[in-house]
Amino acid sequence: MNHLYIITHTDLDGIGSAASILRILGRKRSRDATILYAEPYNIHEILESLLGYFESGDLLVVADLGLNEENKARVFELLESIVDKGVRVEWYDHHVWDPNDITKIMGLGVSIYIDRATCATGVVVRYATRSRGLEPDKFLIELEDVVCSADLWRWSNPLSPKLFRAAGSREERVEWRGKVIDKIVDGKLWDEELEAKLEEYMNQELRNIAKIIDTVYVSEFNNYRIAVALKDEGPPSNSIIGALLIERFKAHIAGIIRPNGGLSLRSRTVNVQKIALRLGGGGHMKAAGAKIKIPIIISILSRINPKILTWYTTRKIRGVLGVVKDINLEATSGY
């Protein structure tokens, strides 16, 4: 193997996935590995940016990223070109995939590992070792537990909420994410620097929650209560906002919309992955996302009154609820 390229998600699970593959392969970031961060809706852009750098014998690892309907055809085209260059491609994920897409991607020569019973970090820990005839070390097993506890909303590990906040914000600079990855590769899950980052994050989170609550628009449709909040840069995370909307507004569906149209959906009783698919996205049953197009007039007016954007977003969700079927979940159903 020559150079290692990793494309991963921006959250803690993406960070844990990247750190895991580096630790398994005995690689170090920057020196002999390049890490780039992506969302499902722009992964094709990241692949395009790397196309001219790949050489025969390189390894490309994609982790914690599913496919979007709007760009998956382009992703397939790019993967075919990359494999044709002699690059080995491995894809690790835990989101819901269309079986036809799995067949297609395998047919291109990509080694794909999907396991919805764990988080993406767990998929890497379990399958990147197994495919190489290795066993995960104790630290990797501990890392899987910490990350999955947060990413799957179990919160069973006491370190999870701390590391989730200190390391997993998508707004964090690339340099900080890289530093966290380096710590994990070196076998460190917590230290004074992470403790200081947690304190900084919590202070920002408390300041921003009040502003976010002021943007919430609540709507009811077909016996479903929808609560949508506008999130700009900074803490708290989408998962924390989603939990807040569900609890405070007794919402069946929580939506977190960004000014650029990035939409995250959370629920405990509704399969929001089906809603996200209709909007061109994907994800899990209880946590999914998509990117919606915001009319210019809505974008302008929402700068004056943020509730215009959250109102518009509830209308988009209501439109999907009018056509999707069988979206109710039992409270104890899987992620």
Rank of each mutant, 00 (worst) to 15 (best):
V216K: 06
G86W: 12
G168E: 01
V125M: 05
R29V: 14
D58L: 09
E247W: 05
N2Y: 10
E142R: 15
G86I: 03
I275K: 11
I112F: 10
A38P: 04
V218R: 10
D58A: 05
V96K: 12
L25C: 00
A63H: 09
S333P: 00
P99R: 09
T103V: 13
Y92T: 03
L67N: 00
N100M: 12
I7R: 11
E144Y: 03
N238H: 13
L4N: 07
P236E: 06
E205F: 05
S219T: 14
V96M: 09
E171Q: 12
I246K: 13
L47I: 06
G178Y: 15
R266A: 01
A150E: 04
R132N: 11
L198V: 10
W190Y: 09
G282M: 03
I7D: 09
L59W: 02
S149Q: 05
F164R: 12
I209R: 14
L78P: 01
L143I: 03
V89L: 07
R170N: 00
D326G: 08
K291N: 08
A227R: 00
G122E: 07
S169P: 01
W97F: 15
C119H: 02
S219A: 14
V216S: 03
E142P: 03
W176D: 11
E55A: 12
F221V: 14
H44W: 08
I275Y: 11
V185C: 08
L230K: 13
P136V: 12
R165E: 11
I46T: 14
E48M: 12
I181A: 04
G86D: 02
L245H: 05
T269E: 12
L194N: 05
I298S: 03
R170E: 11
T314M: 01
H95V: 00
G289V: 12
S156H: 13
K286D: 04
F249S: 01
I275P: 03
L47D: 04
A167I: 09
R165C: 03
I327T: 04
I300T: 12
R278L: 14
G262D: 13
H94W: 01
N222L: 15
G66A: 08
G109A: 09
D214G: 08
L22D: 01
L309M: 14
V174Q: 13
D13F: 04
Q204I: 06
L108M: 10
D182T: 15
G282W: 07
E144C: 12
I304E: 06
I292H: 08
D151W: 10
G242C: 10
R23M: 08
E135C: 02
G52Y: 10
A331V: 13
Y5P: 00
N238A: 15
E205H: 10
K286R: 15
L51K: 14
V216Y: 08
R258W: 11
L140A: 04
E247N: 13
W176M: 11
Y113K: 04
R130V: 14
V61G: 05
D58P: 06
D11T: 00
K293E: 13
V147K: 06
A150G: 11
V228L: 00
Y37V: 06
R225S: 05
V320K: 05
R132A: 07
K274R: 14
A227I: 01
D32A: 03
H9A: 08
R258Y: 14
E69N: 09
K104Y: 06
I209C: 07
